[in-house]
Amino acid sequence: MFRSSCVQSVLILAIALSASAAHADGQAVTRYSGIGRPATSAEVKAWDIDVRPDFKGLPKGRGSVRQGEVVWESKCASCHGTFGESSDVFAPLAGGTTAEDIKTGRVANLMPGANQPQRTALMKMATLSTLWDYINRAMPWNAPKSLSTDEVYAATAYILNLGGIVPGDFTLSDANIRDVQERLPNRKGTTTAHAMWPGAEFGGTSKPDVQGSVCMRDCKKEVIVKSFLPDYARNAHGQLAEQTRLVGGTRGADTNRPEPEIFMSNKASPLIARAPVATEKIANAVSGSAPGAAVMPLLQKNACIGCHAMDGKLVGPSFKDVAGKYKGRVDAVNYLAGKIKGGGQGVWGSMPMPPQTLNEAEATQLAQWLAREFSP
Rank of each mutant, 00 (worst) to 15 (best):
I177H: 01
L58Q: 01
A19K: 06
A155V: 12
F170P: 04
L240K: 09
S213F: 09
S269F: 10
A290K: 15
F90Y: 14
P376S: 13
A126Q: 13
C6A: 14
M123N: 00
Q356F: 01
A28D: 13
P144R: 04
N115D: 15
L172Q: 02
K327A: 14
G346M: 07
A285D: 09
A337Y: 03
N235W: 06
I159H: 02
N302P: 00
T205P: 01
T364S: 09
I282F: 08
R251W: 11
P53Y: 05
E73P: 00
D133Y: 02
S64C: 07
A367K: 02
A294P: 01
L246T: 14
S20F: 12
S350H: 12
V71F: 03
R52E: 08
P167A: 07
V347W: 06
F2W: 11
L358R: 00
L366A: 05
T192Q: 08
H194S: 15
E182M: 14
N109E: 10
S287K: 12
A363E: 04
T250G: 04
A361F: 05
R37A: 13
D54G: 05
R183Q: 12
D54C: 05
E100G: 08
A367W: 03
R119M: 14
R137A: 10
I165W: 06
V295C: 06
T130D: 15
E100T: 15
N359W: 06
L240Q: 10
L110K: 01
G212S: 12
G34D: 07
A193C: 07
S265P: 00
G292W: 02
A155E: 04
